[in-house]
Computed example of a mutant assay.
Amino acid sequence: MCFDKVFPPAFLTEVARSLDEGGAQQLWVIEDCFYTTGPSLAAAALAVTEQLTVGVGILPAVARTAPVTAMEIATLHGFGPGRLLPGIGHGVQSWMAQMGVRPASPLTALEEVLVAVTRLLAGETVTSHGHYVSLDSVRLDQAPADPPPLLAGVYGPRSLALAGRVAGGVVLAEPASPTYVRWSLEQAGRKAGDLGFHVAVFGVVCVKKERAEAYRTMAPWLAHQLEGARANLTALPFFDDMAARYAGKGLDGLATMPPEWWTELAPIGTLDDAAAHLQALEDAGVQSIGMYPFPEAGVARAQIGDVVRLARR
């Protein structure tokens, strides 16, 4: 399950405990500007659980210095060794500009940060004089004995190629279909099941007794995605037809799409439909799946049971 950026921090421990006790494997915390911070939420989740792996999606590369990011990850690893999946990405560039840290080359900045943080977590003493990372004999006092994979939260072809070279995996934003996963791995120069390359994806979850109800509920969400369509949608073989349905019939056109289109897009429909989507993701090479509930705590609380049932399928 994903812990939505709009949720109050105090709700985190309830969600984490419920997932841990129910048998779900992972909780992903979200760091978006200017909401709650990922490391704080992750620390709270790790502190109140025994088995749950906690993913951080994602830390903007330039919002912290590389050593501070490495310190955050090393500290979180100390709370729950083997139970952490940290992600670093470009961050939304307009938000970076608001903070006065927008790099002239986001790609160069991300590569320098990923390389420096990876080396610091490996226990190296790092000296670096790059465009965005400048270090002089920096070494972590408590580097992890077994560092977690450092995942790149990216989506464009050049950024995915970068991830394939220097990151320990990727975090792919919602809606992440099996088609998009395969496309992303191709851009990264990787294959499903590559050792040392962890693939994590996000999706939205909506499980109902009747497919039509789920589709009707989620049609506005899909319409919003289409208005700013990126590769995670345009890579779909039915993207043009889907866009035409929306252009011609609006939300009704989306709500009445073929069930197989919805099943490709996200865990939406019946419980069996959602399970089929997750299985297809795993078949495409995905190891971690974070599902967004509705962005309202009361509704999300009720959806924890759906996430647990899917995790235990």
Rank of each mutant, 00 (worst) to 15 (best):
C2Y: 10
D4G: 04
P9S: 02
T13V: 12
A16S: 01
E21H: 08
A24Y: 11
L27C: 02
D32L: 08
G38I: 03
A47R: 12
T49Q: 05
Q51S: 12
V54I: 12
V56W: 08
G57S: 08
L59H: 10
A63R: 12
A66K: 05
E72L: 11
E72M: 14
T75I: 02
L76I: 02
F79S: 00
G80R: 07
G87E: 07
Q93I: 05
M99T: 05
P103D: 05
S105F: 05
A109M: 08
A109R: 13
A109S: 12
L114V: 15
L114F: 14
T118L: 01
L121Y: 07
V133F: 08
D136H: 15
G156T: 15
P157R: 15
L162K: 14
L162S: 11
A163T: 13
G168V: 09
A176M: 09
A176D: 05
P178W: 09
R182V: 03
E186S: 13
A192Q: 07
G193R: 11
F197I: 00
V201L: 06
V207H: 07
E210F: 14
R211F: 14
A212D: 04
Y215K: 01
Y215M: 06
Y215L: 04
T217R: 13
A219G: 01
W221D: 00
L222W: 06
A223K: 03
A223Y: 03
E227R: 10
P237G: 04
F239Y: 15
D252C: 00
G253D: 00
M257G: 00
W261F: 01
P267K: 05
G269Q: 10
H277S: 04
Q279S: 11
E282W: 15
D283E: 15
G285Y: 13
V286E: 10
P293K: 06
E296C: 01
R301L: 09
A302T: 09
Q303P: 02
R312T: 15
